[in-house]
Amino acid sequence: MSDYKAGSNLEKVLKAGKFAFTGECGPPQGANITKLKEKAAHLKGCVDAVNITDNQTAVVRMSSWAASLTVLQEGVEPNFQMVCRDRNRLAAQSDVLGVYSHGIRNMLCLSGDHQKFGNHPEAKNVFDIDSIQLINVVKTMRDEGKFMNGQEIDVPPKLFIGAASNPFAEPYEFRVFRLAKKIAAGADFIQTQCIYNMVRFRDFMKRVVDMGLHEKCYILAGVTPMKSVGMAQYMAKQVPGMDVPDSLIKRLKGAPKGKAAAEGIKMAVEQIQEFKEMPGVAGVHLMAIEWEHRVREIAELAGMLPRPVV
C-alpha cells in the first residue's frame, strides 16, 4: 500500500520535503487548444503541477476538467480547479469521479468569483455547497469511499486536495481561522492569494506556525509577477482582497523605461527566495497570468530548477 493520499507528483514532492513550485494556466475561450498546448510546453519541467482554472473571474472558458486532460496529455500534471458557483453537489461529485478516472490527481476547491464580474452577469449561480464543504466532500469520497448521501463508491477517487487562502482579505483576524477550518475539513495543501505585502504575510505565517497549521497541511505562497505599473495600480485599486503596498508601485515606477516587466520579475524572484527561508512555507504557487513563457526564466533565476523527481 502506498503512503500517499493520492500519489500525485505534487504530493510526492511535498511529502519528500522538497520546496514545491506550482504554476497556473487558464483554459481557452474557445475550443482551440493550440495555445493551451503551447502554455503546457512552457511549463513542462518548470513546475510540479499546474492549476487549471475553472471559469476564472466568471468568464466562460473551456471546462477545467477538459483543459486539465489536455495538459495531462502534454505531460504536465494538472491541479484541477473547481468552483462552487457553477455546480451543485451532484455535478461536483460526478466531476470528481470523472477527473480521477482519467488520471487527474490534484484538485483545488474554491467558492468562485461572483458571476457579476464575468461575461454572463445574468446567470443564476449555484452555491449549493461552499468551498469548505466541497473540501470535505472530496475528502469523504477519498477516505471513506462515500458520496455525500453516505452511499458507497465503487472505486473511490483519490485526489490530493487543495484550497485557497487570502491572508489579506478582511476581516484579517479571521483569516487564519478560516485557513484552520479548511485544513480541518480536509485540505492537504493551500495556495495563497498573490502576496505583495510581505510584512503582513510574515505576520500571517507566524500565526499559522504558532497554531501548528503548517504541520497539518502544506502551504504554498502565491506569487504573481507584475508586468507593468498599470497592472500594479489595477491590482491595488480594482481587485478585491488584494494588498499592494505603495512602495512596490514606487519601485516599479523607478525602473528604467521599458524595464518595468524585468523589475517585476526581479521582485518575484526575490519573493520566492524569501519564501524558501520562511518558516511554514512549503512551496510557491506562481500565477504568471498569460506569462507562461516567462516561467522558466523566473524558475531559473529563483533557483527552482531542476524540479525534483520523487
Partner: peptide, 21 residues
C-alpha cells in the same frame, strides 16, 4: 452573503463590503 457561504467570509471581503458592490 452573495455566495451563501456558511463557513466564513470569502477572499473578496473589503472594508466591511461585499466584492460585488
Amino acid at each position: 452573503c452573495s455566495k451563501s457561504l456558511m463557513n466564513g467570509p470569502c477572499g473578496g471581503s473589503s472594508h466591511g463590503k461585499c466584492e460585488i458592490s
